[in-house]
């Protein structure tokens, strides 16, 4: 068994022809030149696409939508006949009261050393007053 194995391992194998090597070399040369062309074909569009994306993002930030104006059409005028009574005018039964609400903001505690009140509840409280 060992002898057979040794024989096989050192056998005079039939060699491939020179033509195979030449054809293989031509194939590799062609593939290499194609890969060089592909490099440019790939890189240039890739950078172009990235530049286009950046431009789109930049322009998108600047773009403000225009307000859409809708054409308003007035309803047709209603003709009031002489026999119809005009609608009653609402009577002012109560006087108008104006109320002013003033917010007094709590003084800012700039430093923890000159706080007036230690309570956390009062720290952020604001007071409100109503004047008529």
């Amino acid at each position: 068994m060992k002898k057979v194995e040794k024989l096989l391992n050192n056998s005079p194998l039939t060699r491939p022809s020179q033509e195979l090597d030449q054809n293989a070399e031509a194939l590799f040369d062609q593939a290499l030149s194609n890969s060089r062309n592909n490099w440019f074909e790939f890189r240039v569009p890739a950078w172009g696409a990235i530049a286009a994306c950046i431009a789109c993002l930049f322009l998108g930030r600047l773009w403000v939508p225009e307000p859409q104006v809708q054409k308003v059409t007035n309803p047709p005028p209603v003709l009031v006949s002489e026999t119809q009574q005009p609608s009653p005018v609402p009577v002012k039964s109560e006087p108008e009261v104006f109320v002013q609400i003033i917010r007094h903001a709590a003084p800012k505690q700039t430093s923890p050393f000159n706080r007036q009140n230690n309570s956390s509840y009062h720290r952020f409280s604001t007071s409100w007053s109503v004047t008529q």
Partner: peptide, 22 residues
């Protein structure tokens, strides 16, 4: 396939052509 991979394949072919042919 990249340039490097083609060169890798070429190296593989040159090393193994006899065995592959056999």
């Amino acid at each position: 396939m990249t340039h490097r991979q083609i060169e890798q394949l070429q190296g593989f072919y040159l090393t193994n052509r006899q065995a592959l042919f056999t």
